[in-house]
Computed example of a mutant assay.
Amino acid sequence: MKLAVVILALAMTGCATVEDIEHTPATMSVMSGKSPREYADCFLGKIADSRKPPLVEAHHEGLQIIVAQKFSADPAAILNIENRSSGSSIKVYERLSNVPLRPKDVQRAATACISG
């Protein structure tokens, strides 16, 4: 019964745009000693097994990575990676940030690439 409620809630959420996702609270906000390009390359390598190739764009003083949902091309997560003097700052925004049963592959890949 609980699974049916979760599936129904996910089905009713509809599609989200990049702007919608960016206006939610960040699910992760960290600093890394890696440059934005090094961090992005690491993240792309870690997420490759579970998602379609993400879209990488120049964004302010760094990069933005748009990760698609597992079964559609709609955005599921946004990573904003900004250049800092000693590395980069990373903010992760996820579409279903308030759903505890959401896939954790984006968060695991983002965390795995922090140090290095």
Rank of each mutant, 00 (worst) to 15 (best):
V99H: 08
A68Q: 03
M28W: 00
V99F: 10
R108P: 01
Y39F: 09
E94S: 01
V56L: 01
V30M: 06
S89L: 11
E94Q: 05
S50Y: 06
A40Q: 03
G33W: 06
I78G: 10
L8M: 15
I7M: 13
I21L: 05
A58R: 11
H23E: 14
A48D: 10
T27R: 11
P100V: 00
K46D: 00
I65R: 07
G62I: 04
L63H: 05
R108G: 00
I90P: 01
V30L: 14
L3R: 14
I47F: 04
S115G: 10
I47G: 04
L44H: 05
I47Y: 02
G62Q: 01
V18W: 07
A112L: 08
I47Q: 03
R102H: 00
E22T: 02
E61D: 15
L44P: 04
P75N: 03
P53D: 10
A11C: 07
M31T: 15
I66H: 08
I78N: 14
V18M: 10
V6Y: 11
S29M: 13
N83P: 02
P100C: 08
I78A: 10
N83H: 06
P103H: 02
Q69C: 11
V67P: 00
S115E: 15
V30F: 10
R102I: 02
E94T: 00
V18Y: 04
M28L: 15
A48R: 12
A109M: 13
K34S: 14
K91T: 12
R84Y: 06
A4K: 13
L55F: 12
C113D: 10
S115H: 06
K91Q: 15
G45W: 01
T13L: 13
Y39G: 00
G14C: 08
H60T: 07
P54R: 14
V5F: 10
L44N: 03
L44D: 05
A16R: 01
P36A: 05
P36Q: 13
L96K: 04
K52C: 04
T111P: 05
R37P: 00
S85Q: 15
D20G: 09
I7H: 10
N80Y: 08
Y93Q: 06
N80F: 11
A58F: 09
R102S: 05
K91R: 09
A68G: 11
R95A: 03
G33Q: 12
F71V: 05
D49C: 12
V99M: 08
N80Q: 15
K70L: 12
P75V: 03
S72V: 09
L101E: 11
N98R: 05
G116Q: 12
P53T: 09
M1E: 15
M31E: 15
A76P: 02
S29P: 08
V67F: 09
L96H: 05
V6G: 01
A73P: 12
